[in-house]
Design a protein around this nucleic acid. Structure first.
Lengths: 202, 202, 202, 202
DNA sequence: CATGAATGAGAATTCATTCAT
DNA sequence: TATGAATGAATTCTCATTCAT
């Protein structure tokens, strides 16, 4: 019985933890770090502020995890594409398109990688996240270069530029909340831009 | 005599205004908007908090000016290059290189154009600033397309991507404060990336 | 157990709320709105400034409640008298006397209804409070006129004048903190004044 | 020559002093003590803040004089009426009417006697001013009682009540900025109220 | 374990007063 | 004498964190 309770307990605990993360994610997505106070997270997650501190040592730690879990999820998807079948060019295009599409559906999550967090600790995590993203792109760039598909280039810089290019291009539309049709064209343009940027004119 | 005093006065006032702006710029550059409290600005500028409010109606107004004056200065330089002589490709390369070089000298100022500030008013200014930047690039893109130097593409998106690409790539180095030698290579890589991105595919 | 705690909690919360209101009341009574800073209220109530904001959304809201709760209490007493038995004259006298007597015990609270507070929001509440007072007197005036006890007159103006007359007369004594004996005479004079003011010489 | 300059000087000084007082009066009249900052007074008077302190030792001293000069002016007018010809009743009516009429033209000056000033020194002056007013009314009350026109009563209290009654009644209309026609009726009602209040019961 | 009331340092802003010019 | 820039203490309000229940 003690065993069973313990199991149930752990399940509930894990549940609460996820609820807190989800609430924090939602708040950042909707209003940036500005809107994500501990009280607000507590309110949305249906727990108390005190409970937050049972699962996370500090507000900073919570939001570090918000960022890194979101980025881990995205990176997993991108990795699957990047490490899949097809030419380096095709995989790069698919990866950029995949990220851009999801970002346009919930535009403010991508935005979270841009918003300046209140806490230096979170800020450090944000920078690491961007690097995680670019690491995925580095892989496909390296392969493309090795295969002779892409010209020789700094994979570090190119990957960073790709991440910068599409986050910049994706943040803008938040302003003029446009239709699907425009989104398609936007995604297409970004994908084209990135392909051209890393491939030869030849 | 009254005339002279007035002249001296005006000089000192202009001086103070500049000192405040410089202090604010420095703080943002060193620690982001987070670190730029009115008290800190006052402390660094050598004035009192009250004095800040003689020169700027609000903290937000001060930082809006920090952003827009910096961007105006940069845009003027970029415009001179972009609207100058030479092929569209050459001018684009020169513009990107010029911006990147200066950004690497004061890396966190470029950062200010990326990080979302805490204040919505300043945030609005930041978005306008980025648009100002991309407008400069749009001009050279349009000309390059008209001249047949660049393939047909969305100048809106490409310009945004360029701005995103190099700001992203420029923010990174802040971490590993590197040597000049690396800076040269970094700049070269970014310029190459941007050129390829808009010229390839032809 | 959770139930009991909740009950105790609620009691303590209500208690704190009352303590804050009492502290605010006391400060206004002793030194006017001027002396009633949030810090002072916190100090006297034995709570922190932050706690004040758990119970009241703003300083203005707190003082609006200070005024309106005091006025609600007074109006209830006056209404009971005014809507009771006896001639209109007798009830008017009793009401004025009742108010004056209590006002002399805590003279500066009556003062709060006279002095314009610094905050426009509170000022609006103050005006409403005075109107609430005069509404009570309007009722007895209308009845007195209907019964032929009082001559025809503007009940609006007369009621306002009555409120003005006794608040003015009641504020004065604050200066020369007098004895009970004088208070009696003062009350008597005010009551007489008000009766004469609304009744015929016939 | 030195003599003449001195004379001109003194004139100009007196002029500045009056300008400052006028500016302060205007500000209080338009927006209460809240709106009457030293900077605002300086701006309207066409002088500098520093100059204010050449003519008045402190902000409080300035506003004490604003109040007492205004009250002196009003009291002079009322005194002329009260100490003039006619029955006590007629003079009382004329005095109340005169004050009420002028108060309705510049309603916010009467209002200055109600607004709580930021400074205790000014507050003390405000109370003295109200006493000055009631002293004028005391005179006519005493005469009326001596002549058998008014019943025996506390002249202190009755005078205070009269001042209270009409200031209260006069402040109200500020809200619904009414027409002359209504003003006439309002003045008439106040005058009647005050007459009845001191004459009835005989 | 969970709660959420309480804390208190810190933020932006205001304004009477002073003093170098 | 006049100016008005500068001061800096005071005010209101916020919010991450703690701890008694």
């Amino acid at each position: 019985m003690a065993y069973q309770r313990s199991a149930l307990m752990q399940e509930r605990l894990a549940d609460n933890r996820q609820r807190i993360l989800a609430a924090a994610r939602q708040l950042v997505a909707e209003g940036g770090f500005r809107a994500a106070s501990v009280t607000a997270v507590a309110g949305i997650s249906g727990l108390s502020t005190g409970a937050i501190y049972r699962y996370f040592p500090s507000k900073a730690a919570l939001f570090v995890e918000v960022l890194s879990s979101a980025v881990a999820y995205e990176c997993a998807i991108l990795s699957a594409i990047v490490d899949g079948e097809g030419s380096a060019t095709a995989r790069l295009r698919a990866a950029v398109e995949s990220f851009a599409r999801r970002a346009l559906q919930g535009p403010h999550l991508a935005y979270a990688f841009i918003a300046e967090p209140a806490d230096p600790e979170v800020e450090a995590a944000r920078i690491l996240c961007r690097r995680d993203f670019s690491n995925v792109f580095k892989r496909v760039l390296r392969q493309g270069i090795a295969d002779g598909e892409f010209p020789k280039q700094s994979v570090d810089i190119s990957a960073a530029c790709i991440v910068g290019a599409f986050t910049e291009a994706l943040v803008r539309p938040t302003e003029h909340r446009a239709k699907r049709r425009q989104d398609r064209a936007l995604i297409r343009s970004i994908v084209d831009f990135c392909e051209r940027a890393v491939t030869n004119g030849g």
